[in-house]
Simulated assay, not measured.
Amino acid sequence: MWNHPPYWKDGDVESGPQALYPTMLESPELRWAFIRKIYAILTFQMLLTVAVAAAVVSVRPISHFFVSSGTGLGFYIFLIILPFIGQV
């Protein structure tokens, strides 16, 4: 259906006879190590987010703090706005 270049027959674009990035100076192993490092960081961040959310939901004093006091509500609003401030 689609006209693929001949180096897609093997299933791996980077292993074909034609160089995918002809001007790339570093080795592909370094690039894959960087990609693995990024995925490890993202996995750690997601696990930390799940752990904090589980603590807030399951520990009654923490959830009560966020809904019952003005300080907790202010802190909650700050935590919601913080990622937008970090993007700048």
Rank of each mutant, 00 (worst) to 15 (best):
A19Y: 00
R36C: 07
W32P: 00
I77E: 06
L48R: 04
V52S: 01
T49K: 01
L20N: 03
I35W: 09
V67S: 01
W8F: 13
L48F: 11
S15H: 13
V57D: 09
I41L: 10
P5I: 10
M46H: 09
Q87G: 04
Y21G: 00
L47M: 13
Y76D: 03
A33M: 11
T49C: 03
F34Q: 10
S69P: 02
V52Y: 01
V88S: 06
V59L: 13
N3V: 10
M1Q: 08
V67F: 07
Y21R: 02
P17D: 10
S58V: 11
A51R: 02
V59Q: 04
Q87F: 14
I80Q: 09
S63D: 08
T71Q: 01
I81F: 10
R31E: 11
I62L: 12
A19V: 08
P17Q: 12
I85A: 05
P22M: 00
K9N: 15
N3D: 07
V13C: 09
V50H: 01
L48P: 00
G72M: 04
F84H: 06
E14D: 15
T71A: 06
Y21I: 02
I81L: 14
Q45L: 08
T49I: 09
L47F: 08
W8I: 05
P28Q: 09
F34D: 05
Y7V: 03
I77Q: 03
A40Q: 12
W2A: 13
A51Q: 01
V56Q: 08
P22K: 00
A51N: 01
M46N: 05
S15N: 12
R31P: 02
T23S: 03
E26N: 09
E26I: 15
S27W: 06
S58Y: 06
Y21S: 00
I85F: 07
D10V: 03
A19G: 00
R36W: 05
L25E: 02
D10E: 14
F84Y: 14
V59A: 06
A33P: 04
D12L: 13
S27R: 03
E26M: 14
Y39L: 07
K9A: 15
V57L: 14
G72D: 06
I41D: 10
S58F: 11
Q45P: 00
